[in-house]
């Protein structure tokens, strides 16, 4: 066994290593801690949002080894060794990621709560390279809900970046 926390439920935390936004961190996590809760509660990276906490809204989307996933459904302990990119790692004020700039340019949000997840999801989607039209963007982004209903402008922003090829 590569790791055995011991039985019956003896060990409360397990040591893992994560590279988060370029910085490698050695962490002690309880096995039942989700990646989302670790980021927000343990590491103060509150850009990643908790919406439904059940994988239905996409607000918690982050990139794990370059692939977008719902961090609310991932146990942190299982991501030992992974590279995590959150909205804080995509860009900063003054050095925005092209998707962040496009969301501002196209007014692609209202309340903004879903926006970090939308942008991380769009970054992952563009890297996947399977969407080439507005229709395909809409389908590929269906895991991100915007209850303000800014979808039209969100697709505009993503399409803009897709056509400019600036995301990568």
């Amino acid at each position: 066994m590569l790791i055995d926390s011991g039985s019956p439920r003896a060990m409360e935390t397990i040591g893992i290593s994560l590279t988060i936004n370029g910085e490698t961190r050695n962490l002690q996590v309880a096995p039942w801690t989700t990646l989302l809760d670790l980021l927000r509660e343990g590491l103060d990276l509150t850009g990643t949002k908790k919406g439904c906490d059940h994988g239905q809204c996409g607000a918690c989307t982050v990139l794990v080894d370059g692939k977008r996933i719902n961090s609310c459904l991932a146990l942190a302990v299982m991501k030992d060794g992974a590279e995590i990119t959150t909205i804080e790692g995509l860009g900063q004020a003054g050095a925005m990621h092209p998707l962040q700039a496009a969301f501002v340019e196209h007014d692609a949000f209202q309340c903004g709560y879903c926006t970090p997840g939308q942008i991380c999801s769009a970054a992952g989607m563009l890297a996947e390279g399977h969407a080439h039209s507005r229709e395909e963007i809409r389908e590929a982004m269906s895991g991100n809900i915007c209850r303000c209903g800014a979808y039209t402008n969100i697709v505009d922003a993503i399409e803009d970046v897709m056509q400019s090829g600036a995301a990568r």
Partner: peptide, 19 residues
């Protein structure tokens, strides 16, 4: 979520055994 033991299997045989 309830608390649980966490085991990381390195082989199929280990996974079967841990089940």
């Amino acid at each position: 979520m309830n608390r649980f033991d966490y085991v990381r299997a390195g082989t199929v045989a280990e996974a079967v055994q841990a089940l």
